[in-house]
């Protein structure tokens, strides 16, 4: 299947600073593609290049398998960096401009404003909006005309916790509707909950890309506790495939060579061995830890 976006050796310099160094990857159709990296890693620059607001110094890219054009950008809802609107115009009038540029019907404005809970403020001027409201208006603008591809650069900037959760839900909802979403963020916990694929950038270099599981192998372990900790330790020592056991106060962290066994099996196994567990919890390394580990390895 033709990738939605294909990058080939994209490079970009700002004077002597190389912001992107030969970045190449494909964004598959229907994926939620996270572009990850710390501040200054080149995420926004990369999106700026593919949205034609920054001129690359080398390489090429294609949208929907074709050379980039203004018509293609009309089919992509993009929030890049900050919400950019005419301060003296109302939310409604700003979205009318966006709809006109995208060649989308003005009737759709009511739907998108309701979706981001700004319909009641549609006649308020943009300059009177809070940071979170501005961000929500920018997301509304992206959704005009129901585009099949969405590009969000730090979409939860300026939002409160409930706003962040709402945007996360919206992204999941859009993804389940079959839309391709490209999401640049440095908030890994946010990305972890929604992304199917990732590209990891560090100082303009692509470290890894692909589906989340293969790009970021996250270590798994099991936590077990019992009233009889010594007896439990003896049982765990005899368990096949155990790599290491770490005592952590009132429970053990058990790491396996192969994927962790089914918790139900482990529980019944311990019971059969004459011990009742009072704590059993499968654990997985956070994306953040995996990311830090990966970027540290590359730095070293």
């Amino acid at each position: 299947m033709t990738p939605i976006l294909s990058l080939k050796s994209i490079s970009k310099t700002y004077g002597r600073i190389q912001a992107l160094k030969g970045v190449s990857f494909d964004v598959p159709s229907g994926s939620v593609f996270g572009i990850l990296g710390p501040n200054g890693s080149g995420k926004t620059t990369l999106l700026g290049v593919v949205m034609d607001v920054l001129a690359s110094n080398g390489g090429s890219y294609s949208w929907f398998g074709n050379a980039p054009s203004e018509k293609q950008r009309r089919e992509i809802g993009t929030l890049l960096e900050t919400p950019n609107f005419y301060h003296y115009l109302s939310a409604q009038h700003n979205l009318e401009i966006a709809a006109a540029i995208k060649h989308k019907p003005v009737d759709d404005i009511e739907r998108v404003l309701k979706l981001v809970r700004l319909y009641e403020r549609k006649d308020s001027k943009f300059q009177s909006f809070s940071l979170g409201m501005k961000q929500r208006l920018a997301i509304a603008s992206c959704l005009i005309g129901n585009p099949s591809v969405l590009v969000f650069d730090e979409p939860t900037n300026g939002l409160d916790p409930s706003g962040i959760a709402e945007i996360r839900e919206l992204i999941i909802e859009l993804a389940s509707a079959g839309k391709t979403i490209i999401l640049a963020s440095h908030l890994l916990a946010e990305v972890e909950k929604v992304c199917t694929h990732v590209a990891i950038l560090q100082r303009g270099v692509l470290i890894k890309s692909g589906d989340v599981k293969s790009a970021l192998s996250q270590e798994e372990w099991m936590e077990l506790g019992s009233a009889e900790m010594e007896k439990l330790k003896a049982i765990l020592d005899r368990l096949p495939g155990v790599n290491k056991i770490i005592s952590s106060g009132n429970h053990f962290q058990v790491y396996f060579n192969s994927p962790s066994p089914d918790p139900a099996w482990l529980n019944s196994h311990c019971f059969e061995q004459g011990i009742a567990l009072n704590y059993l919890q499968p654990r997985k390394e956070s994306l953040e830890s995996a990311f830090i580990e990966l970027t540290n390895n590359v730095s070293n």
Binding site: M51, D52, V53, S69, E70, K71, R73, R74, T78, L80, N84, F85, A98, I101, K102, H103, S141
Partner: peptide
């Protein structure tokens, strides 16, 4: 920038 992003050359 936004006008270009939204679909103008």
């Amino acid at each position: 920038r936004q006008n270009i992003i939204d679909g103008w050359s």
